[in-house]
């Protein structure tokens, strides 16, 4: 019998310590914890056991809530913005280095792959190599950090908006929330706005009468939109935006995973590729 009660090893009056044990503890089986506490003289009677347990569980619940919500979507917004800024910074510096090497050599060097860039820089040699090698190493490290940040963003997206994440994928979900400002803001947007979120330039050009209406914004990165043939993209984007809007509202107002959504989206998309006009 190795199971330990929530009150074991601490002062049962210490609400803070007790709430930590409720949050983090576990046991393979439940037991007669109350009777044991009375037997061991930890509490005098059932009523005082109940009071201690209730104080500790309320504190634990509150702490768990705080950890899971409130600032969670704001943190996600900051994380994904930082991720995108980091990606842009890495790319810009790579391009600078690639350009520097190209100028010094006869052939064109592309910025795409860090490993090739390192090789090219070595073969270029001279003051260019001594000057830039350290920076390129730093960029390699930064790239690894970015991967780390990316997986944090993915986990956080799942916590903040499980339904939206399931339908849109973690990065798109995070970017949509960031574009709206918060999960609540996104939940309050009409589906038509969700559809063109991130295409504000095109949208306002359209409203000035200078361009056709944009068919999609950020959601263009969703595989179903990107892979749709040009003539269908508007409809696919519209249908997808509708489901994403529903998913976001469930995430915000109910907060539970609704397993039926994914199948509904799949059905809708199959229906459209089958030629049914939507």
């Amino acid at each position: 019998m190795t199971d330990r009660a929530w009150y074991e090893g601490i002062d049962i009056e210490d609400v803070e310590a007790a709430s930590v044990q409720i949050r983090q503890g576990s046991a393979t089986h439940p037991h007669d914890w109350e009777a044991r506490a009375i037997e061991q003289g930890i509490v005098t009677d059932a009523a005082s056991y109940h009071d201690r347990l209730r104080d500790a569980s309320l504190a634990a619940f509150e702490a768990d809530l705080e950890a899971l919500t409130g600032t969670a979507d704001r943190a996600l917004v900051q994380l994904v913005r930082t991720l995108d800024a980091t990606t842009a910074a890495i790319l810009e510096l790579r391009q600078h280095i690639a350009e520097a090497i190209t100028e010094a050599s006869t052939q064109e060097v592309r910025a795409g792959d860090l490993d090739t860039l390192t090789e090219e820089l070595e073969s270029a040699g001279g003051v260019l190599a001594t000057g830039l090698a350290g920076l390129l190493d730093g960029l390699n490290d930064l790239d690894r950090e970015r991967e780390q940040l990316r997986s944090t963003v993915e986990q956080q997206a799942m916590t903040v908006a499980p339904n939206l994440t399931q339908l849109a994928g973690p990065l798109l979900a995070a970017r949509l929330i960031a574009a709206a400002g918060s999960l609540e803001d996104l939940a309050k947007l009409p589906s038509s706005t969700m559809q063109v979120l991130g295409a504000e330039g095109a949208l306002f050009a359209h409203l000035r009468g200078e361009a056709p209406a944009p068919k999609h914004g950020l959601i263009f990165t969703h595989p179903s939109v990107r892979s749709a043939p040009g003539v269908d993209r508007g409809r696919v984007a519209r249908a997808l935006a509708g489901k994403l809007t529903i998913a976001t509202r469930i995430d915000h107002y109910r907060g539970e995973l609704e397993p039926t959504l994914e199948a509904e989206l799949a059905d809708r998309l199959t229906e459209m590729s089958g030629g049914v006009r939507g």
Binding site: Q21, I22, S26, T28, W33
Partner: peptide
């Protein structure tokens, strides 16, 4: 208890 009912072991140390 803010716990997942699919993981009873996370509250077995609390519930009778």
């Amino acid at each position: 208890l803010l716990k997942d009912a699919r993981r009873p072991e996370t509250y077995s140390h609390v519930v009778e």
